[in-house]
């Protein structure tokens, strides 16, 4: 791996009051990496939902537990421009295969976080972390201008993951 150290590293407490700061950091970094405004918002939303799930389900709303957030500008091996976010905790471990979003036809409060994360990010991977806790790896690809036409022609939803980040001129 060419660049395994994160370019941005943040440790925060599992207190919902810090969600806003984490979102702003992620959105700001995403913007400087070249993502358009909607993609920045979606990446920040995915991170917010992941943090909420850790606080709510992993730590049972305890506000004094650690969460670590690491960011790379693309994959760790330097390939594929985009944004890689790794979120780690010391919460109880669960089988990653049972983590899934609920059926959306069943409209009820709650249970939307995992669905949103998987919808807006290109790659989502949960795994148990050693020696404790869970690790969530999120990746969103940065679509170059030459690729954007293909994405548009694929019938991209305005809200879904097919609406990839675009290279913007003001990034």
């Amino acid at each position: 791996m060419a660049d395994t150290k994160p370019h941005v590293y943040l440790e925060l407490r599992s207190d919902p009051v810090y969600l806003s700061g984490a979102r702003q950091l992620i959105a700001s970094v995403a913007q400087r990496l070249g993502f358009d405004e909607m993609a920045c918002s979606q990446i920040a939303l995915a991170v917010d939902e992941a943090l909420c799930n850790i606080i709510r389900h992993g730590y049972d709303r305890a506000t004094d537990r650690p969460i670590w957030l690491s960011v790379w500008p693309g994959r760790k091996d330097g390939q594929d421009p985009g944004m890689l976010v790794v979120i780690e905790d010391e919460a109880r471990q669960i089988d990653p295969t049972i983590i899934r979003g609920r059926e959306l036809d069943d409209v009820r409060p709650g249970g939307l976080g995992v669905h949103i994360i998987k919808e807006v990010m290109d790659e989502v991977e949960y795994e148990a972390r050693e020696p404790a806790g869970m690790r969530l790896t999120l990746y969103k690809r940065l679509v170059q201008k030459d690729d954007s036409q293909d994405a548009d022609q694929a019938g991209a939803s305005p809200a879904g993951s097919a609406d990839q980040g675009r290279v913007s001129n003001d990034g």
């Binding site: 979102r23 918002s41 939303l45 917010d48 939902e49 909420c52 409209v107 009820r108 409060p109 709650g110 939307l112 976080g113 949103i116």
Partner: peptide, 16 residues
């Protein structure tokens, strides 16, 4: 300017 799934859940509960 921003709403996450907890906000959505709150509105779904209110709508019900």
């Amino acid at each position: 300017e921003y709403m996450d799934s907890s906000g959505l859940a709150t509105l779904v509960e209110a709508a019900r």
